[in-house]
């Protein structure tokens, strides 16, 4: 464990990030746990691993090393249906957009963490199945851990791991008697750049 820690720290040479305004662009992939795990129909609906792009704007909060960020991510993938018999099928694609307000704090050297929340929006390309009534949105909480490596005086390289959580349901599911919500965790990895101002 210590060895891993040492490698991570060596990879992301200490880059003192005095809190300052930044813009970050990133690209990566997002894996999502099932949106619906239907115990009666023995069917799972999940989004395929989705290419993801992100944009964040960081705003310093006073003189400390903390800052607030407005963050958004966009991904698109096709929901996969898996039946109890093992049969799988793909449905029309769904765009997933999240908008987050995050608070960032240093952890150690170039390693920093963010935590926050916001909203997640599902925008289907076709009104179909659980998205028969169109778009759906839910509240979301998220946590990120990322490392930075200095490229130039104003640019940093970022490697980010993100976990978020929301409770999924749609108006169609509720109308058809589905109770409660499905806990959905998403895991994302991305690489990006940060421009300081």
């Amino acid at each position: 464990m210590r060895l891993i820690h040492a490698v991570v720290l060596a990879g992301f040479a200490v880059t003192p990030l005095a809190a300052q305004a930044t813009v970050q662009l990133s690209a990566g992939a997002t894996y999502s746990r099932p949106l619906v795990d239907d115990g009666i129909l023995d069917t799972k609906l999940r989004l395929a691993v989705a290419p993801t792009v992100g944009l964040a704007v960081g705003i310093p909060t006073g003189s400390g090393p903390y800052r607030a960020l407005l963050e958004g991510h966009y991904s698109r993938s096709r929901p996969t249906v898996t039946e109890g018999t093992g049969v799988t099928d793909e449905l029309s694609s769904v765009a997933v957009i999240d908008a987050l307000l995050m608070l960032e704090a240093p952890i150690h050297g170039g390693i920093r963490a963010r935590i926050g929340g916001g909203a997640i929006f599902y925008q289907p390309s076709e009104r179909q199945g659980v998205f028969l009534n169109g778009a759906a949105h839910r509240w979301i909480i998220a946590g990120e851990l990322f490392g930075t490596r200095r490229l130039t005086d104003r640019m940093n390289l970022l490697v980010t791991g993100r976990i978020d959580y929301h409770e999924f349901s749609t108006s169609v599911l509720r109308a058809r008697g589905y109770g409660g919500n499905q806990s959905v965790q998403r895991y994302a990895l991305s690489v990006g750049v940060e421009r300081k101002f």
């Binding site: 946590g143 976990i163 959580y165 409770e167 589905y178 409660g180 806990s183």
Partner: peptide, 14 residues
Amino acid sequence: VAALAGVGCTTIAS
């Protein structure tokens, strides 16, 4: 942050 990985595990009630 790590706690987010394990937060909530409810399944929708069909």
